[in-house]
Design a protein around this nucleic acid. Structure first.
Lengths: 236, 236
DNA sequence: TCAAAAGTGTTGTGAATACACCCATGG
DNA sequence: CCATGGGTGTATTCACAACACTTTTGA
């Protein structure tokens, strides 16, 4: 019956965490960074990296901090956005924990081995991580599933795909991102036209990159645009 | 330096609330349900309805309960979805409060006057609520802004617009939803074609409704489809 | 019979596909 | 000179915006 936020606080023990789904593309597969849990519960099982929100910290700040701690990278160079929150009463056996999940993505990142928390962290193809035989801790399977769905949708009407490519990149690099995440083959020539015609998606550097085979490809960098209008539709 | 969730919990005082942006369309205006706060802080100011998440309660459950308490309606008949979470350390002067914002929408709802918490609740046009001269409590202006943006985007690629119409409804009713929320005029004939051709968006009841003027319009009910493919684009 | 809104038909424009074809490089 | 991928040209198809036009009602 209580309306809105009113003092005094009818408080009960709650903790708030952030969990981060960090995507990258490795060996033409969408991969997620998973850590091996070092403590109970779920000791030894795979889990998404994450941690507690600290007293003076914004949610985005907590996510950024965890991201840097886990990957050892400059967090500002990675795309990071809030996914959604999860708060089922029984999601953590130790008590009430609400987690705010984040989605991060970056270009083919190095395997995290820096002496930090990243020990025990490994890139795992999402196909493997979501396989029925693979066990994820807590409700992390649901979080990962939602993150994949979000990433797929984002490709359609935003330019986040460029975030998976290290600059400078070729149009083929960018196309492979779409093909891997959507799991479809795209027509190279039509894809090129669509992308180069969309203002602000990519801009040419003027350089070229020698390929393993065939004609060298022109190089591009990200153009800064955020939305993709009209969207790149998945069905054609 | 802590990784993931680990015992013992490095807990500090946190509260978790849900706040709900409840939209409806009244007098051809997108309107939001705002309550007048009865206590400090922000006593007397307008705020989004909301309240604390209870110990045994899921986030969605808390949102649904608050929705029912505020509107006195059957919550299951309303569209309800999580928007995002807000957790700036200073967003509530009484302490650390993380809120999970929800977006709800329904057909022209009655003014809530039932003897519950709804006293002091009123439908407010969002244009007025977001006017610089209008004061909203906490960070509710930001939440409302995000909710409007989400609603606008949802119209494009989902069928939520039907949730604003009481069944049975006419194609014009549905079109008015788009026109009001997007703030544009749509061509009636092209809109009709688009909507009726999209499988599962609307299905005819066979009935007609006498209009104030002109030819009676055929009546439809929602067809059950969730996504709208291809999307209804805002720009021509 | 007129106004007003519902609903249909038609046409021109532009985007997306499918695919033929040329380009540049390594072997 | 052949294989391989990069990149361009182009015809066909299709969706959509624009708008003329017909239908059905109340006044």
């Amino acid at each position: 019956m209580n309306r809105s936020v009113e003092a005094p606080l009818p408080r009960f023990p709650v903790s708030v965490t952030v969990d981060i789904v960090i995507f990258t593309i490795r060996d033409d597969e969408l991969s997620v960074l998973l850590i091996e849990r070092g403590k109970e519960p779920h000791l030894g099982r795979s889990a998404l990296p994450g941690g507690y929100v600290r007293p003076g910290e914004d949610l985005d700040g907590a996510a950024l901090r965890e991201l840097v701690e886990e990957t050892g990278l400059d967090g500002r160079s990675l795309h990071l956005e809030q996914l959604r929150s999860y708060g089922a009463p029984d999601r953590d056996p130790r008590g009430r924990v609400i987690t705010v999940a984040y989605l991060a993505l970056g270009p083919d990142l190095p395997t995290p081995t820096a002496g930090t928390d990243a020990a025990g962290a490994a890139w795992t193809p999402v196909g493997k991580a979501l396989d029925p035989g693979f066990t994820l801790s807590f409700d992390h399977r649901a979080i990962l599933t939602d993150a994949v769905e979000r990433a797929r949708a984002q490709l359609e009407y935003t330019t986040v795909a460029a975030g998976f490519c290290r600059e400078p990149f070729t149009i083929s690099d960018l196309r492979r991102v779409y093909e891997v995440i959507w799991g479809v083959a795209l027509d190279p020539s039509n894809f090129r036209r669509k992308v180069t015609k969309t203002a602000g998606f990519v801009e040419p550097t003027g350089e070229r990159r020698a390929a393993e085979a065939g004609r060298p490809a022109a190089l591009y960098r990200f153009g800064g645009a955020r939305v993709l209008y009209p969207p790149l539709l998945r069905t054609g």
